[in-house]
Amino acid sequence: MRLRKLLQKVVDNFYFKRTTYSIVTLFGLSILIFAIARVLPGDPARLALGPRAPEDVVERYRALLRLNEPIYIQYYYWLVDVFHGKLGVSLVTFRDVATDILEFLPATIELIIFTLIIDVAGAFILGVLSGRKPNSLIDNFVRIFAYAGIAIPAFVWAIILQLVLANWLDLLPAYGRLSLGIEVKRITGLITVDSLLAGNINAFIDGIRHLIIPSLSLAIGCIAQEARILRANLIENINKDYILNLYSHGIPQSIIFFKYALKPSMIPTVTVMTLDMASMLGNAFLVELIFNWPGLSRYGITAMLRKDLNAIVGVVLVIGIAYTLASILIELLVSVLDPRVKHKR
């Protein structure tokens, strides 16, 4: 009896529900990706091997992919392979896709994490500054910056920043993750971490210098959007009764602003970060291409341009899982900020 109650409690738990839903969605996503790889192209075997491949080779490959079986059987075998970490072999380089992905993934992780740091810091500072003094000079600057951030695509930012900061002003390197001649032994694959582990400060600084422009191009749009949302919510909340109530008790302004107004205002800002995370992961494909960044996205773009089906599927799958994890994390963060979320329904 008590066990049943406990079970019921677990099932009703907010985090449990959220995670189950994500797992179900991920399964759906696997069907979608499978459909992209096997259904859309018409004949995947012919697509993979190119128009000039002899018919008997294509036929053998078709048998290998089990293309002659019913579609759900194909999906079953494909999924079993995915669960065993088998993403197949690149149709162009004949290298193992899973190995390749592990090789390139850390560079993208490092780029995204660094972007997130810049994004959160920038959005927070700009949002608070403009929300504290609406219509001030800084607020107007943020407003213009926000329109620029929305209207200028990340890949245009990338080109502009590369041109200005790297080519003209020569402040920062324009390509790659490390300068020539600097080498770091690969442990985690994250250059900043590996260089610190090796005690190589020069490499660490060089790694950071290479990260700045790509991260900035990815972050600017998100910073602009989040700063505007934070500002709007601060201005709205500062006039709410729950703030005026605290004013009526003579609580110092700084405490009211930074404790009682900031926390509820951050909730919509953090919520929108799911969408910004999506745009970061998407734009990373272009930014890594522009900066010749040896990451998963550039690997993915190369695969896409060569119609390397197995590699495309692998990359999309990994990004799908990563994005799902990121959204769960963001929702956790929101539920920490907003206790009401957990108690709904």
């Binding site: 996503l29 745009s279 970061m280 998407g282 494909f285 990004i319 994005y323």
Partner: peptide, 8 residues
């Protein structure tokens, strides 16, 4: 399911 992937 469609939203589970970044749009781009």
């Amino acid at each position: 399911i469609f939203i589970a992937l970044p749009p781009l």
